[in-house]
Amino acid sequence: MAKQEYVSRNLEWLEAKSREPGVKPLDKGIFYKVLRSGDSKGALPGRGSVVTVHYVGKTINGRAFDSSRGATPPAFRLRELIPGWIIALQQMHVGDRWEVYIPASQAYGKSAQPGIPGGSTLIFDIELLAVN
């Protein structure tokens, strides 16, 4: 498949996903669906927070490129992650589990990463376990 066709297919997939029941918008073309709600009165992470999460990352064809499931959940400084994660996680409370749909412009853009072609829309199942 040609690069431009791949990019177009990813954008079309995201547009279709955005119209599904239960899918809600965030900033910059990011969408999410709540899989489980945590404590709505709990703290929200800020850009400088360290977040502990479990996650699975997939491309739109369903192929997983990364996962923390089955291992110790990693901790990340939020500001060091891709923009899509920064935007989504700042809206999540501890215990929330969301499926997040991130356009390439808020992920790796045109750059390919291991297991991720350039221009990919990314799908993440993210569970926020702790904020420090």
Rank of each mutant, 00 (worst) to 15 (best):
A2D: 15
K3H: 14
Q4M: 14
E5W: 06
E5L: 15
E5H: 12
Y6K: 02
V7E: 01
R9V: 06
N10F: 01
E12F: 08
W13E: 04
A16C: 06
A16D: 15
A16E: 11
A16H: 10
R19G: 12
P21S: 05
P21L: 03
P21Q: 05
G22Q: 04
V23T: 14
L26K: 05
D27L: 15
K28P: 08
K28M: 10
I30K: 05
F31Q: 04
F31E: 02
Y32E: 06
V34Q: 11
L35D: 06
S37E: 13
S37D: 10
S37P: 04
S37I: 12
G38V: 00
G38H: 03
G38I: 02
D39I: 04
S40D: 12
S40L: 12
K41S: 15
G42S: 09
G42M: 02
A43V: 13
R47A: 15
S49W: 02
V51H: 03
T52H: 07
V53K: 12
H54R: 12
Y55K: 10
Y55D: 10
V56Y: 03
G57W: 03
T59P: 08
I60P: 11
N61C: 04
N61D: 15
G62W: 13
G62R: 15
R63I: 12
A64E: 08
A64P: 03
F65R: 01
F65I: 07
F65V: 09
D66I: 14
S67E: 06
S68A: 08
R69V: 13
G70A: 00
A71D: 11
P73M: 02
P74K: 00
P74L: 02
A75S: 12
F76Y: 15
R77M: 01
E80A: 09
E80M: 05
L81E: 15
L81R: 11
P83R: 08
G84H: 07
G84Y: 04
I86S: 11
I87R: 07
L89K: 05
Q90M: 08
Q90W: 00
H93K: 10
H93I: 05
G95S: 04
G95W: 00
D96E: 04
R97N: 10
W98G: 00
V100R: 10
Y101V: 00
P103M: 09
P103W: 11
P103A: 12
Q106K: 11
G109N: 13
K110T: 13
K110M: 13
S111V: 15
A112Y: 00
A112V: 04
A112L: 02
A112E: 07
P114N: 03
P114T: 01
I116C: 01
G118R: 05
S120D: 05
T121R: 04
T121Y: 09
T121C: 11
L122Y: 06
I123V: 09
I123H: 03
D125A: 06
E127K: 11
L129V: 00
V131S: 01
N132E: 08
N132R: 13
